[in-house]
Amino acid sequence: MPSSSLAPILRVDRLSYCYPGSHPALRDVSFELGLNESIGLVGPNGAGKTTLLLHLNGLLPGELGAAAPRRQSAADRRDSGGSVITSDVARGATIEVLGMPVTAATLPEVRRVVGFLFQNPDDQLFCSTVLDDVAFGPLNLGFPADEVRRRVANCLAAVGLAGLEGRGTHELSFGERRRVCLAGVLACEPSLLALDEPSSNLDPRARRGFIEVLRQCPAAKIIASHDLELVLELCTRVVVLDQGRLQADGNAHDVLSDDNLMQSHGLEVPLSIRYGQRLAEPGK
């Protein structure tokens, strides 16, 4: 595994998950992510990509099937946001972020370390002005007002939207909304970015701009996407997920250029590889 020499920022070990009343969404998924590593999470629709990302932030209660889950105390199971977390440590499955197991007790710290960009900006932009929305995270982290304002200004500048604080979130274009979402995540200064379909529904110019913004972010990244060219540009490593199982894990270029592997999991070799016109060096 390419990350073994570095201390992992994320370790997922034998994670399984089943949505209530549905078939298993994740089965026995294990992988590690090194500091400053960027990993692409690819696979067909319904492969479990979003489910996996939600686990990294402790957003899904891990009900881990019939095999006698280890009980936590009632106080432990209630996370601070009010939802009930059942044990993720059942059946020996663990998720560790910077060495901390993701449990109800560590959730505030885990959510500070892991920044989550949701697929639909309208789900994430819940405040009526850009300023309030980007300030939401830092305020929850308890920073004083002037530090919050500084962070908001910096993060809006980082995503190329400096000075948009006063705008209403419903007045923005789709691309701007996604950038504001990213600014809101960056304002918490996460060490790991979990990005769910960061380029979906963007026009080519907005997509290009967004890729460049992501490239500038120093945080480690885990990017779930169908946009394999984006994955190839931003990620050193690729994990293929299908039917809830890890199907492949390796160097981005090697995995994405494996025609048989791609075809059998509803993917295709990116055109830039197929035609030998690589847009960028892999891993840069």
């Binding site: 996370d79 946001g81 892991v114 300023l131 007002a145």
Partner: peptide, 23 residues
């Protein structure tokens, strides 16, 4: 469904049930 996703998005940015505003 959307309300649930919004709740997740709020939790993901450290919401703990208290509403804070920039004054």
């Amino acid at each position: 469904d959307r309300a649930e996703r919004i709740h997740s998005a709020m939790c993901a940015r450290g919401w703990d049930g208290r509403i804070r505003a920039l004054e």
